[in-house]
Design a binder for these strands. Structure first.
Lengths: 225, 225
DNA sequence: ATTTTCAACCAATTTCCGATTGGTTCGAGA
DNA sequence: TCTCGAACCAATCGGAAATTGGTTGAAAAT
């Protein structure tokens, strides 16, 4: 009669979590206490708790306890926390996954004046007299694309991504007095992106952005590897 | 000769922060140690530190210490700000742009145990006895896909997006005792996504996720007019 | 007189250690 | 075969103690 034993413990448990209001936010007593109070072995109790957890009625965490209801989510996007967990390779991966789709949206939604601004920004980047200024205009170009998507949420996510990127690659700023070479690979890639957006070609914009970021990634690899 | 004394301490300090690489992230020794090591009174040292802080060369915080460089910014992405600016349509647009690419990464990076978890979660969603529980398992499924991407930054961005989504669609939860119909459109769509991930087919995973979200979007439109 | 120094204290923060808790293993026993 | 009890593990929590920048006041030095 294994099934009987299990069912009995289960129903007693259900009564416990449903019947009484748990004093602390949905938290129920530790397994050892609960086992004794229900006059059951800890093993059987844990088996029943596992069932309830599979049903989504309770959730557990080592060191915290067992709780009734839904598992609470992290509602704060702490950029510092992301920076702690991530690394430059992941950041590049996230950019390659995310920014091409932003560019696709931009191609479909950009206003003519935004397209003009994109072109202007691109030229400014090409004429930048130093690497630092070039990167400044490059950043602005990528953010303008986010603005051109006309989706404030996408823009917010892009800003978050950039904040993490800046934090992770901190100190890697090139501050040489040299200017980027006239045949810098990014120039043509930027042009392709902007033209695709101007042509309202979402697929081409996404593709050009992906190629651009992959190019940046490979150059990063060369520089450091 | 007040000025002289001050200047001497200042220059010695500047040498200290500029000359040697600080072992811990820009942190320099506590004032009491530093004062002794520089053979200066703590008062004089603090005066010099105040000058450096005014120049932005160092920053200090009670209980933490004194650090070289710029004070790190308050880096919590303000979800509330995004919620203020956006709307449900934008949220859906952002999901359609973002989540398919996350699914693509998941297809390439998921571990076998994560794939098993995805399948289990999908079944749980199909068997959910109420709409609320279904949405709970649906949310978990989408987040599991984010975890399976093995990119903590993508996961962080996904969590941010979900936090905004929850805030925007708050109060729209269906809590009817009815269960989702057995032929609910999402069931087959979920299956397609999970199978594409299991087959390591990134393109198919992205495509299935996009179709799924578009389907959700159209049903939202129908429901709310 | 004015400034510097020193000691003591305050409040914010970190660090450390012990207690708690879910997760796991193992052998005895029903 | 399953259950029970015990022991142990790793993650977490809680609080005491140490650390640290900030402040005050009296003594000492100039």
């Amino acid at each position: 009669m294994i099934e009987d034993r299990h069912s009995v413990v289960l129903s007693r448990l259900r009564d416990f979590v449903g019947g009484a209001e748990l004093p602390d936010g949905g938290r129920l007593p530790p397994e050892r206490e609960l086992a004794e109070s229900l006059d059951v072995g800890r093993t059987a109790l844990r088996k029943a708790l596992a069932t309830l957890q599979a049903e989504g009625v309770v959730w557990r965490h080592v060191g915290k306890g067992t709780f009734a209801g839904e598992r609470p989510m992290d509602t704060v996007a702490d950029i510092n926390a992301m920076v702690q967990r991530t690394n430059p390779l992941e950041v590049m991966g996230a950019r390659i996954a995310f920014e091409p789709e932003v560019a696709r949206c931009a191609a479909l939604n950009a206003t003519p004046s935004q397209i003009a601004e994109l072109r202007s920004c691109m030229v400014k980047a090409q004429q930048a007299p130093t690497w630092r200024l070039y990167e400044q205009w490059d950043n602005r170009l990528h953010r303008l694309i986010g603005e051109a998507s006309q989706n404030s949420l996408l823009l917010g996510l892009l800003d978050t991504l950039n904040a993490v990127r800046r934090a992770v690659t901190w100190g890697r700023l090139r501050d040489t007095p040299v200017r980027p070479p006239a045949d810098h690979h990014s120039f043509e890639e930027h042009a392709r992106i902007v033209e695709a957006i101007a042509n309202r070609d979402g697929a081409a914009a996404a593709d050009a952005m992906r190629k651009h970021l992959r190019s940046v990634e490979s150059h990063l690899r060369d520089a450091r590897g």
